[in-house]
Design a protein around this nucleic acid. Structure first.
Lengths: 363, 363
DNA sequence: CACAGTTTGTCAACCGGTTGCCAAATATTG
DNA sequence: CAATATTTGGCAACCGGTTGACAAACTGTG
């Protein structure tokens, strides 16, 4: 039952540290064992000759005190190098200036951009990000979410593994935004796969492919179904046949393992649930003597870090994951300011990034 | 610099939410439906028929209350689904059960493993990780560190960019651990590059290489100097000549740009400051018609995610970054329990991972 | 059974801000 | 200039736990 939180708002910076006590009253603060004690609004009040509540108002309620006292108080705060104590502030108000983000796997590169997008957007609006990992387990995820929820102002779930009702329960408590999944009644940000997928399928069709395979991801992933739907529809439209293959896990290793099935399927073009599968698949096929893209074209999904490290570099449907993070934070912070949550899921565009792993069939 | 906006009218909610006008003496928390409003120790005290302070002791000071009341209180807590309010606890004690981690760049894969190691080790001991990014800027880093420091129990700096004295100043305030850099007086965890580097250089020498180039990283990186020292020493020992080349930035792109200098240097084997440089360099050399490793061998550093996506896969000196994260957290938590900080820097071993990008010279 | 020594629970004072309420100070108006 | 409206600052009660001091309830002993 670890709990974490925190916040920070560092408004007053600039003055040098201590050493200049200017000895007026008595040395005010002393604390338990940490030598360094930061100034409190009481110290400021004493220095400025006003009441602590006036200090509080001056520093948080703009316009509530006269410009004159405002100035006096700000000067005193600067001199004492004052920083609000986030805990003291959070206790009565419940506001923590913090948002939580839960991802399934910290080391999965898919989430890197989401994390960064969220962090950047959050700190631009003076919110701090607290990160937690669910280790791909729905149970851990629920626990982490509950835990986090009590210490943050809002929560973002990226590709959550728990079920819809659990998410709705969380959302009933505090603002929640979901990335990479659609749940009615909860604000969601999802990449709209259709554009990217149709571009991919059309490009494959134009290169002479007729038989397409889709390598699916984890069963409990909402996205794997959406992507398969998209591939099926686009293939139909382009008059290609499409077959769905299952992978054991959505990793490089899973991609290697599915290579056999891919060959057996007779498909000449493959779209995978994510880039890791595509990379593993490509490695295994190449190891078996196949030439990519001359004999088989491979298209990944997401455009993760490293997708262009391969030879040939991976063609992939890019999901704007950073934007997803940004959007989710924006929605959340807007909700915290009293805005309505968007009724519809927010959709962000995907697009095909053509690199070397897809092309004309030479066989 | 106006930070806090006025909002929030959520006052001490006595009984605003629901319709139970009632209005008897004291009915602070109603718990008609599930775990909506979190229970406090006062609720538990009432239910268990004891004083709140007894509840507090039962829940945090093991052995301070009798086994009998302990049991009663625990049952009551369980029934009310009690969770401590971290803010309320942090206020008087200053302890937050939280540690901060500052990295230069969230999207730099070098840090992924550090983050994961720290997160895992931390949550195993009931600490939560708070992540901040310095965006490679020393100033941002100092600000972030100061800000974080006031809200966490301890701080970890991974590859810090600020200068030694600033770090010491932080460390004077609260426990601080540093990764990837050595600073006297501050607990540090650093990969011991010597073993990995000598393995690499010896392997290159054994493959017939005589002229070695080292592609350096950012000037302000402490590690780039250490690695160059290691390469120089090992080269001397193995009777190779070694030349140092500068890169513009430690990224794939920086690696591409340095390819010219590498060719001009006449070296047949290259060790780079990190894997990204190695990957970029390899891409550029291959694009120019060079064959790796037949004409030139490339050895990276760190063994980041994706280092084996390349063709040939990258030979690299692996730094156990996850272990660095783990160790740093362990040191920090031990310090928080009153242990002494280790006097010497903690060294973790590096090792050569031989893949396809290094080998015998055929030219 | 009285008495000193231990446990165990209670009281009350914090930690550092926030905010409803009220009175004093100031501004506006007839 | 008096009367009323509006600011502005102070008081004090919180938020939910922690902890030192102390008394009541037990324990063991002579």
């Amino acid at each position: 039952m670890a709990t974490g939180f925190f916040c920070c708002q560092a408004v007053y910076d600039g003055a040098v540290t201590d050493l200049t006590s200017a000895g007026a009253a008595t040395t005010p603060t002393r604390r338990g064992r940490g030598e360094k004690s930061s100034a409190t609004i009481y110290d400021i009040a004493k220095l400025a000759g006003v009441n602590p509540s006036t200090v509080s108002r001056a520093l948080s309620k703009p316009g509530r005190v006269s410009a004159k006292t405002q100035k006096i108080i700000e000067d005193a705060a600067a001199e004492l190098n004052y920083q609000v104590n986030p805990f003291a502030r959070a206790l009565p108000t419940g506001r923590t200036q913090t948002i939580g983000l839960i991802v399934a796997d910290i080391t999965n590169p898919t989430f890197f951009d989401i994390i960064r997008g969220a962090e950047t957007t959050g700190s631009a609006r003076d919110y701090t990000l607290v990160l937690a990992e669910s280790a791909e387990s729905p149970e851990t995820e629920v626990t982490a979410a509950r835990r986090l929820l009590s210490t943050v102002d809002g929560l973002i779930l990226a590709s959550p593994r728990m079920d819809d009702d659990q998410i709705r329960a969380l959302a009933a408590d505090k603002p929640v935004a979901v990335i990479n999944r659609e749940i009615t009644g909860v604000p969601c940000v999802v990449p709209d796969v259709n554009k990217g997928i149709s571009e991919a399928v059309r490009s494959l069709a134009a290169n002479g492919h007729e038989k397409l395979a889709y390598v699916a991801g984890p069963k409990q992933s909402w996205m794997t179904a959406r992507r398969w739907d998209g591939v099926k529809a686009a293939a139909e439209w382009s008059k290609l046949s499409a077959v769905r293959l299952e992978s054991s896990k959505p990793t490089v290793d899973g991609g290697r393992q599915v290579a056999r099935d891919v060959l057996e399927s007779g498909a000449t073009a493959v779209i995978t649930y994510n880039d890791l599968l595509a990379i593993g698949l490509m490695q295994e096929l190449q190891a078996g003597g196949m030439s990519v893209p001359d004999q088989i074209s491979i298209v990944g999904f997401d455009d993760i870090f490293g997708a262009d490290f391969t030879t040939p570099a991976l063609t992939t449907v890019r999901s704007p994951l950073g934007e997803c993070g940004t959007r989710a934070v924006t929605i959340l912070l807007d909700m915290l300011q009293g805005h309505e949550a968007p009724g519809e899921a927010v959709r962000v565009e995907t697009e095909l990034v053509v690199r070397g792993s897809s092309g004309r069939l030479l066989a």
